[in-house]
Simulated assay, not measured.
Amino acid sequence: MKENKIIEQLKQQCPDNASVKLGIGDDSAVLNPSDREQLVCADMLMEGVHFILDSHNVEKIGHKALAVNLSDIAAMGGEALSAYICLALPRSHAESRFMERLYSGFSSLAQRFQVAIAGGDTNIWEGPLVISVTVVGAVHPKGAVTRRGARVGDVIMVTGELGGSIEGHHLDFTPRLAEARILMDGYKLHSMIDVSDGLGKDLRDICRQSGVAASLDPELLPLRGPLLKMPRAEAQQRALSDGEDFELCFTLSEKEAERLEARRDISCHRIGRIIAGEGLYWGHNEKTWEPIHVQGYEH
Rank of each mutant, 00 (worst) to 15 (best):
G127S: 03
R151P: 04
R148P: 03
G163F: 01
H170D: 04
P141E: 08
R101S: 10
R151F: 03
V135S: 09
F98W: 09
A144C: 05
V152D: 06
G143P: 14
I156Y: 03
V158T: 07
A138G: 10
R147F: 09
E100R: 13
R151E: 12
F113T: 10
L129S: 03
V130C: 11
V155C: 12
S92P: 04
V152C: 07
L87V: 10
V133T: 15
M157L: 15
R112G: 06
P141A: 06
R91W: 05
G143R: 09
T174W: 03
L109R: 10
G119P: 10
T146C: 12
G105A: 02
Q114S: 14
M99C: 08
Q111F: 02
Q111Y: 06
V158W: 04
H170Q: 04
V152R: 09
A178W: 00
L177R: 12
V139C: 13
F106Q: 05
A150S: 14
L89P: 13
T174S: 13
R176F: 00
L171C: 03
E95F: 13
G127D: 01
V133F: 13
L102T: 04
S132P: 01
P141N: 01
R151D: 04
E126S: 03
A138V: 15
V136R: 04
G160P: 07
R112D: 07
I131V: 14
I131A: 11
H140P: 00
D172Y: 08
I124V: 15
R148Q: 14
H169Y: 02
D154A: 05
H140Y: 02
E161K: 02
R97M: 06
G119I: 04
G153Q: 05
T159I: 03
A118H: 05
L171P: 04
K142C: 06
Q111K: 15
R151Y: 03
S108V: 04
H140E: 03
G120K: 09
A150R: 12
S107F: 08
V115L: 06
S107G: 11
M99P: 00
A144F: 05
V115S: 08
R176D: 12
F113Y: 15
I131F: 08
A110N: 11
